[in-house]
Design a protein around this nucleic acid. Structure first.
Length: 481
RNA sequence: GCUCCCAUCGACUAGGGGUUAGGUCGUCACUCUUUCACAGUGAAAACACGAGUUCGAAUCUCGUUGGGAGCGCCA
């Protein structure tokens, strides 16, 4: 196998789990860093779990994240189709081969018998519940008779006991299982669809997949896949089982303990750059101190050799930090576009680009999310209704009223005052009252913004403009007395 | 229960026989800014435990403990 070919093979059962996005990312990074191909294959062999629109959702999320695939649905490729539901003939043909070779066998057991068997084995406290190979011992005649009678059936893998199944995992190195522990896995379901195990092995081989990079939850079923490759006489791909993404309590990342759908993060305003950067670092490191990466940089630095073995907790705090880093690094124009988009969701519309650009400049170091260009400084969009109580208590003195009126009077003299002129007016006012600048600054901040924190006071005044500034001073003076 | 996997600060991790065990997030303090942030500086904070190998173990081996995943006609 010379060409590097990897695949992301989700099942279209709904939203895209953040852990799956990471699996897709690692596959993508590995392929791109090696000049290989990244394939998207839809594993839709479970008719009962199909969800309308799920495939479109998967594709749109990959697109959003910037993980463009080389072969797959909508795009095609040399080894399609890329929907397993369209490859049924291929599976049944290959399964026929297995049957012929006695590597697989028909099973006519009912679901009831299997359930009873399982319960019985549990009651007997057997180490493991397994199929008892009952149908393996059916004679050829019996099988034929059942088949002719149209009896529902499945096809099972015939696992020979007493052997050691070894394989090498890129991340975990040598792993071995005893075949006594592996069940006679159903390969073909009674509805004629293959199970994951069969379809996955056949497709990976036919699609010339060189590396199977997937989550660690697949490690326990890998011996089944190894057995299948051997039964077919095929060369095995390189397996690489990625460490799991974990909840804060170290269990597998799941709903109920936070958001797991990529869509949720997108809706909450997380940047794709931040999310990609973050999940790339969950289980992989370049080994240096670099923390901020874009996709191209990840491709350049990525290596499967440096993937970790142990699970990684999804720490939202670090994601938030990365979001802020990526957001603040964006050019004004891009932020402007996102801000305007965000504003359409609010009652604040109609502000000019120049006005918004001023807000962006003032707020940039103070935000982690786009929406905070609004929520962290509402006073740029509407007049303050109330005044932060604690700061009123602390900063509003009996004299404040006169001081602010004086300041208002001074800036009224200007047509459109520049920042420096606000500053000059403020200093003069302070001097005339023989007080420190703070005695003007704090009440002024309160009057114009209603709160105690934010951009520099001259920036606020300048952005608001003379009219608004004076207007707000007058109102504050009236309300606060 | 059984099988397999894993184990460095609270989190992500570097280091893989001799290091003051390094970085990042978070936390705290200080500096800057008469605000809040940003930035900068600094601090607290880790090799799960026990044996063995070795002159020397976080690092290698074994065991223990702990955690996780998997045991479907789901993927």
């Amino acid at each position: 196998m010379d060409e590097i070919r990897v695949r992301y093979a989700p099942s279209p059962t709904g939203y895209v789990h953040i852990g799956n996005l990471r699996t897709a990312l690692y596959n993508y990074l590995f392929a791109k860093s090696k000049g290989g191909k990244f394939i998207l294959r839809i594993e839709d062999t479970d008719q009962t779990r199909k969800v309308e629109g799920a495939v479109e959702n998967i594709i749109s999320i990959l697109k959003w994240a910037g993980l463009d695939y080389d072969e797959g649905p909508m795009k095609g490729g040399s080894d399609g189709p890329y929907y397993q539901s369209e490859r049924l003939a291929i599976y049944s043909e290959h399964c026929g081969y297995l049957l012929e070779k006695k590597k697989a066998y028909y099973c006519f057991c009912t679901a009831e018998r299997l359930t009873a068997l399982r319960e019985e084995q549990q009651k007997q406290k057997l180490p493991q519940t397994k199929y008892d190979k009952h149908c393996l011992h059916l004679s050829e005649d019996e099988v034929k008779k059942n088949l002719d009678a149209g009896m529902p059936h499945v096809i099972r893998l015939n696992v020979e006991p007493g052997q050691i199944i070894k394989f090498r995992d890129y991340v975990r190195e040598d792993v071995e299982f005893h075949s006594d522990m592996v069940d006679d896995q159903i390969l073909m379901k009674s509805d004629g669809f293959p199970t994951y195990h069969l379809a996955n092995v056949i497709d990976d081989h036919l699609m010339k997949v060189s590396h199977v990079i997937r989550g660690e939850e697949w490690l326990p079923s890998t011996p089944k896949h190894v057995l299948l490759y051997d039964a077919f006489g095929w060369e095995k791909p390189v397996f690489a089982h990625l460490p799991l993404l974990l909840n804060p309590d170290r269990s597998k990342l799941s709903k109920r303990q936070g958001d797991v759908a990529v869509e949720d993060y997108r809706k909450k305003g997380y940047l794709k750059e931040a999310l990609i950067n973050f999940i790339a670092l969950l289980g992989w490191t370049a080994g240096d101190d670099k923390e901020i990466y874009n996709l191209d940089e990840l491709i350049k630095s990525f290596s499967l050799d440096r993937v970790n073995k142990s699970g990684a907790v999804f720490d939202i705090e670090k994601l938030n930090w990365l979001n802020a880093e990526h957001l603040r690094a964006k050019p004004d124009e891009e932020i402007l576009g996102m801000l305007k988009e965000e504003l359409t969701e609010t009652k604040y519309a109609g502000f000019s680009d120049d006005y918004l650009l001023n807000i962006i400049a003032a707020m940039r170091p103070r935000v982690s999310f786009i929406k905070e260009f609004i929520t962290n400084c509402l006073y740029f969009y509407e007049d303050p209704e109330t005044y932060e109580e604690a700061s009123v208590k602390k900063g509003w003195k009996p004299q404040s009223k006169d001081i602010l009126m004086k300041f208002a009077e001074k800036i009224s003299l200007f047509d459109t005052p520049a920042k420096e002129e606000y500053e000059k007016a403020l200093k003069e006012t302070a001097a005339e009252f023989s007080v420190g600048n703070g005695a003007v600054i704090h009440p002024l901040r309160l009057a114009t913004s209603g709160v105690s924190g934010g951009p520099g006071i001259f920036d606020i005044c300048f952005i608001l403009g003379k009219e608004k500034t004076v207007e707000r001073i007058k109102r504050a003076v009236e309300v606060l007395k």
